[in-house]
Design a protein around this nucleic acid. Structure first.
Length: 882
RNA sequence: GGGAGCAUAGCUCAGUUGGUUCAGAGCGUCUGCCUUACAAGCAGAGGGUCGGGGGUUCGACUCCCUCUGCUCCCACCA
């Protein structure tokens, strides 16, 4: 079959992916083989593929394909996450663009829109993963809001409620005024933000609500909250302010009288030492308020606007109010000064809105016991984090975790299965029917229509923490005592999880908790934490910067294999990935290299009568040994999750060893056929190489594997067994490397002296050269070798060392004798210095007695080698009469 | 404010219990080549006091201290 000069991925990728699907090669069912299980970190259902997904899923696919070729029953479960806040805000925005406000819709109407949106965009990212070559078991695709998965989430809630882990209460939570929901601590990102530090004068009251001329100064970043002040607080030890004890002060602008209280929380040397206490709008102030029994005056509404309790600036946005109140305070004489100030401000991870600490009624999950077990799972090594450094971070988080706020004031998600009776009592049950049964126990006269379900939904992570369980068995979550179904029993725990460190706590830690709770076993053995994909300048990829390439365009341009390779080449676990398109180019080039190597071999005709040449025989022997050595190295890299090292090892093995050396050695003379022995060996090697490359580059390897021999329908490289490392003779490999050294040196001499490769040269080799390797030098360096113990020759010659063997190329008339002598003398000097250093070491009593025998022996070998080199250099110099 | 990590060639990174002739790889660069698979290629070459300083050791890229620079995580000083 005639092959084009360049590999064309577009022609092959869709074809083979369809073939794989058609034959259900990705599908897994429990059987007697050892399972290898991976669950995908479910991307947001309405998301589109970005470079982070490419990295993650390429790594996953490599692991899965490798395991499959190792004969394991590999199962990679794909799916998507409903991503409640992200999806809901997208739907809200879309409706808004159509002139529809969420508030004008009923819950049911809104959800109808949301589902419509989900149906429209839901499959996109999964189809994009197919383009990448991901070998997911698509028959097992799950969505975190599939009815049975949602049921599992509800059961889990009920389970923890009944266990006493879930409670409801008014707490200061992180309020997102744009997303209009509470968010968990983990969803708040603190960023240093420059703002103003306002120094405000609070006048002392005369006792009747009138200002005296005395005042104190407080410093605040949030002057718009002064109307919610409940007290002024000083440190009891602060003598500067003892005169304030028992006094009352007036809030500026509204002249409301508030007490001065004392609490050691106040730092005397920060700000002015006076703190305004605003229990409704600051976590610490809230705590102080509780200690001192202060009223809570909430003046900010859900949208972040001042409400009527503020008395002034009602309806203004908090930031607008801040600007305006600054002006008002200035005019009223209450503003002493304004300083620039940088402090950490919390932003919503999802909407980027400034988080408003807000008191509200929320549901919480107690974390203490769960975290303890989850910490133990990692500390004991039951779950391994790769790289290991994340253990510290993990431990720190686990030891300081606070209760998890699991309610969200959203509609898209699993609605909390809590039902309120008319009197406000609450029952928790998996459905309305069961809720009614429970309600009747409390109040026998209650009717179904009297019950009102909590309108909030659960945090998305409250569903995704069940993922490794619920994708297999939706009944087990919430029912630790239930028998796992066949799938769960077989596939759980999964083997490896590939994900980003940014969701170590959001997701990984919580999956471990859920696994321990419901399965009494961890959900995975290894967690491979990738880096974050950045551009080549080290910047995070973002839409606003426009520095994120579109993976699909890259695939179109370079092929999926090229993109996968480009991604893998620069990815070591845990390090951030600096992605550059040139790496994808390198991937494409490698495809082309493989393609052309195949074209060469494919074009050979066997000549049954031809005898195997010496060079080919040596090459086949060497390459067979080298193959085993490389397989061993690659296997070692895999076992340590060093996937980019495994890839690079194979890359060099193919490009350098196979193409540059092996193929050049066995290549028949122009117009001649190849002997059958060498041909068969070459095909065998090529077959092994394709299998080794396949996990990284599935498409091109399938294309060539299918092409290299007649295949039956239903055969595929992806189900072939990965070649196993056999024994090898290290001496053969080392000898071959010596021959290569000689070839390189002679090529260098040719280039230096301007000699054509076609001109056969004489070469003299000294004692120690592996004579069996001479055919290599003869063929690739075009030389006629001769032996001479010293490796020197009478008359003009260029000499060089290969290991400890001296070699010379006699070149009458082309050698500058002085130059050659100078070179030899320099070499001699260097060698003598080296020898002296070695001997210094060896004459050091402490070294000889202290260092391990092996090291000392090595030094003695260095000494001997050095001596023999010096000898041959001297011999060469002697030939010049020196 | 607390904690962790990183710093090796122009770039991105290996260097796995301190010891092989160990200072490496890939890419880029330079030089010469359209040599009958591949110019998306072939052949060759150059390039680093392993961030600075100190210490431990017979021996340090590797261990300890310190300084400098960067990154990340956690955190309620208004």
């Amino acid at each position: 079959m005639e092959l084009s000069a360049k590999y064309n991925p577009a022609e092959t990728e869709d074809k083979w992916y369809a073939y794989w699907l058609e034959h259900k090669f990705f599908h897994s069912e429990p059987d007697s083989r050892e399972p290898y299980t991976v669950v995908i970190p479910p991307p947001n259902v309405t998301g589109i593929l970005h470079m982070g997904h490419v990295l993650n899923n390429t790594l996953n696919d490599v692991l899965v394909r490798k395991a499959r070729m190792d004969g394991k029953n590999a199962c990679w479960v794909p799916g998507t996450d409903h991503a409640s806040i992200a999806t809901e805000s997208k739907v809200v925005a879309k409706l808004k663009a159509e002139g529809i406000e969420k508030e004008s819709l009923t819950r049911e109407e809104f959800l109808a829109h949301a589902w419509e949106w989900k149906e429209k965009h839901g499959g996109i990212i999964l189809n994009q993963l197919r383009k990448l070559g991901a070998s997911c078991d698509w028959d097992r695709t799950r969505f975190t809001m599939d009815p049975d998965l949602s049921e599992a989430v509800i059961n889990t809630f009920v389970y923890f409620y009944e266990k006493g882990y879930i409670y409801r209460g008014v707490r200061m939570v992180n309020w997102d005024p744009v997303g209009l929901t509470a968010v968990s601590d983990e969803e708040v990102i603190h960023r240093d933000t420059t703002s103003k530090f306002y120094h405000l004068r609070y006048f002392i009251s005369d006792g009747n609500g009138n200002p005296t001329d005395k005042y104190l100064v407080i410093a605040t970043t949030r002057p718009e909250t002064i109307m919610a002040d409940a007290a002024i607080c000083i440190n009891p030890a602060d003598e500067r302010y003892h005169w304030l004890k028992g006094k009352k002060v007036l809030i500026p602008l509204i002249n409301k009288e508030i007490p001065v209280i004392e609490d050691s929380y106040v730092e005397m040397d920060f700000g002015t030492g006076c703190l305004k206490v605003t229990p409704a709008h600051d976590v610490n102030d809230y705590e102080i308020g509780i200690r001192h029994n202060l009223p809570v005056i909430d003046i900010i509404d859900n949208h972040g606007r001042l409400n009527e309790k503020a008395q002034i600036l009602v309806g203004e946005d908090r930031f607008e109010a801040r600007r305006k109140i600054e002006q008002m305070l200035q005019e009223s004489g209450n503003l002493e000064k304004v300083e620039a100030y940088t402090s950490p401000v919390g932003y919503s991870e999802r909407t980027n809105a400034v988080i408003e600490p807000k008191l509200s009624m929320q549901w919480f999950l107690k974390m203490e016991d769960l975290a303890k077990d989850a910490l133990e799972s990692v500390e004991s090594g039951k779950v391994k984090l790769i790289p290991d450094k994340y253990r510290n971070t993990y431990r720190h988080w686990m030891e300081n975790v606070r209760d998890w706020c699991i309610s969200r004031q959203l509609w898209w998600g699993q609605q909390i299965p809590a039902y309120y009776l008319p009197d406000g009592k609450v029952v928790v049950a998996p459905n309305a029917q069961k809720a009614l049964e429970k309600a009747l126990e409390i109040n026998p006269s209650v009717k179904a229509e009297d019950l009102r379900q909590d309108p909030d939904v659960l945090d998305t992570w409250f569903s995704s923490w069940l993922w490794p369980i619920s994708v297999f068995d939706t009944n087990k979550a919430g029912h630790p005592d239930a028998e796992p179904n066949r799938d769960l029993a077989y596939y759980y725990p999964t083997n490896d999880l590939v994900t980003g460190p940014d969701i170590l706590f959001f997701w990984v830690a919580r999956m471990i908790m859920a696994g321990n709770e419901f399965m009494n076993d961890v959900p995975f053995r290894n967690v491979y934490l990738t880096g974050i994909v950045r551009d080549k300048l080290g910047r995070k990829m973002s839409k606003t910067l426009g520095n994120s390439p579109d993976p699909l365009k890259l695939i179109e341009q370079y092929g999926a294999d090229g993109v996968r390779l480009g991604m893998l080449l620069c990815s070591s676990a845990g390090n951030d990935i600096l992605f550059d398109e040139s790496q994808v180019e390198q991937g494409r080039n490698f495809c082309n290299k493989i393609w052309n190597a195949y074209r060469l071999v494919n074009g050979w005709n066997t000549d049954e009568s031809a005898k195997q040449s010496e060079a080919a025989a040596v090459a086949v022997q060497w390459f067979g040994n080298k193959l085993n050595a490389v397989l061993e190295t690659v296997e070692d890299h895999y076992s340590k999750f060093r996937l980019s090292d495994a890839l690079m090892t194979i890359y060099k093995f193919f490009w350098d060893d196979f193409c540059a050396w092996y193929l050049e050695l066995v290549k028949p003379a122009y117009g001649c056929g190849i002997d059958p022995v060498t041909y068969d060996a070459t095909l065998k090697f090529f077959d092994a190489l394709l299998k080794m490359i396949h996990p990284f580059m599935p498409f091109i390897t399938e294309e060539l594997w299918q092409n290299m021999a007649p295949r039956k329908e239903g055969e595929t490289i992806m189900l072939q067994r990965m070649p196993l490392a056999g024994t090898y003779d290290a001496k053969v490999i080392a000898d071959f490397e010596m021959a290569c050294g000689a070839v390189v040196a002679i090529r260098g001499i040719r280039q230096q002296k301007g000699l054509s490769p076609k001109e056969t040269l004489d070469v003299v080799y000294g004692q120690g050269f592996p004579e069996g390797m001479l055919p290599v030098v003869v063929k690739l360096a075009n030389v006629k070798p001769q032996f001479n113990a010293a490796g020197t020759v009478e008359g003009s010659a260029v000499s060089f060392m290969v290991g400890t063997v001296k070699m010379s190329v006699p070149l009458t008339g082309l050698v500058d004798e002085q130059e050659e002598i100078a070179k030899l003398e320099a070499e001699l000097k260097h060698q003598e210095e080296f020898l002296a250093a070695v001997r210094r070491k060896l004459s050091n009593e402490k070294f000889v007695s202290g260092a391990p025998e092996k090291v000392v022996a090595m030094e003695r070998k260095k000494e001997a080698d050095s001596l023999s080199k010096i000898e041959s250099i001297q011999a060469a110099l002697a030939s010049y009469g020196k």
